[in-house]
Simulated scan of single mutants.
Amino acid sequence: MAEPDPQRNFRSAYYEKVGFRGVEEKKSLEILLKDNPLDVEKLSTFSQRFPLPSMYRIHVWKVLLGILPSHSDSHTLVAGYRREQYLDILQALEVMRFVHSATPPTHVYLRMFQLESRTLPRRCDTTDPDEEDEDFLAVGRAMEEIADDPVDCYWLIKCFVNQFNNKFGDSIPHLPKSLEHYLSQEESRLLNHLKNMGALEQLPYNLWFRRCFAGCLPESSLQRVWDKVISGSCKILVFVAVEILLSYKIMLMGMNRPEGVVSFLCKIPQENTDAIVTKAIDLWHKYCGTPMHSV
């Protein structure tokens, strides 16, 4: 059995101490991405355990969402098909005059999604977006900041929304109760305060759980949360919400009107969200453990 490499161990410890813990993880991910076919389960497990390096995030998301197949030698061909399909749908919407050159990209993506899912309204029936459409648009605006290419952006939004609804749709109504449970474990005084003023049932659950914090967290923090959602966990959303409440405990404890609480939580300060997400992920691992599959 080979002796441990003290120099390598020192490097790993040093990298972690100075904030470069991702160096070793990046190497592990690069090894996984050389497999052909790609092991989707191992990629999912990696994404559950570690933040994805930004240079690989879009690629891994596309594999996990099924936009690209596990066989790497087919990626170029499939990417070409995805682009052709995108252009065909866009052209159809232009011919039907549902979109034009001045239509905001996120609204174009919404119409494309509706056309593909056979929910496109008749032009005479088009009205303001309903709540479900607004959820889609919020996710779309956030994804626009993460993915540069409009073709990638559309497919990521579409497959993210579909996967989320299909996989977690039945779980979403139960997430507020989960939040109440974990908040009672971490800070019962805050929970009781929110209950007593009538704010608990009015918390922005739709923003947090239906939109997966799109429009609440900046994209630099949001994508670390979406790593976990895309790789198979909607429970991470609960712990982000819990950590937001814990982070602003003093401020919330000083409020006595539920509308003030909701107004603040819908527009939390953006400067410390990375720390909030880091603590939320630690809390998630504390209560839910980490995946045990080997990576």
Rank of each mutant, 00 (worst) to 15 (best):
D148N: 11
P104R: 13
P176N: 05
N162I: 03
P104M: 07
S247Q: 12
M112S: 06
S74I: 00
K286V: 02
A280N: 06
A147S: 10
R82T: 04
R118A: 14
D73R: 15
L191E: 01
Y154V: 03
P218V: 02
R123N: 06
N196G: 14
I146F: 09
P218W: 03
M143R: 00
A275M: 13
K177D: 02
P173G: 00
T278H: 09
I250K: 15
N9K: 03
L203F: 05
P173Y: 05
I172P: 02
Y109D: 07
H181P: 00
E271Q: 14
K26C: 13
G198E: 01
L93D: 09
M55W: 02
P69M: 10
Q48R: 13
T119R: 15
P51S: 09
D35M: 15
Y182V: 08
E243H: 04
Y205E: 04
A138K: 14
K195E: 05
G19Q: 03
K167M: 10
A79V: 01
V262N: 05
K286N: 11
L52K: 03
S178M: 08
Y81R: 10
L190T: 03
W226V: 00
A92W: 05
R224P: 00
R123W: 10
G80I: 00
G80Q: 01
Q270T: 08
P104K: 12
M255L: 15
R123E: 04
P105M: 11
T273W: 01
W226Q: 03
T278Y: 06
Y86P: 07
V242P: 00
R21F: 04
D135M: 12
K34I: 00
E131I: 06
K26D: 09
D133L: 05
Q48D: 01
P69D: 04
R8T: 08
L183R: 03
D135Q: 08
R57L: 05
K34N: 12
V225H: 06
S171R: 12
N272S: 12
I67S: 02
V240T: 08
L245I: 02
M96A: 15
H181G: 01
Y81F: 15
Q85M: 10
R49K: 15
Y182L: 02
N166F: 11
C159K: 14
H293Q: 13
V229K: 07
I236N: 11
W208K: 09
W208H: 02
F264H: 09
L93Y: 01
V225A: 04
R57S: 00
F136A: 06
E180R: 09
Q223E: 11
S72D: 00
R141I: 00
M251K: 13
K27V: 04
P4N: 12
Y287S: 08
I31E: 14
D227S: 04
Q202F: 06
L43M: 08
V229F: 10
R97Y: 01
G215M: 11
I146R: 00
K286R: 15
P218D: 07
G19R: 04
N36V: 04
T273L: 03
S54L: 13
V240M: 06
R49C: 07
L32C: 01
E16I: 08
V261Q: 12
D148V: 08
R211S: 09
H293E: 10
S220L: 08
P173K: 04
L77I: 09
L265G: 04
P291A: 10
M292A: 13
K279T: 00
A102Q: 07
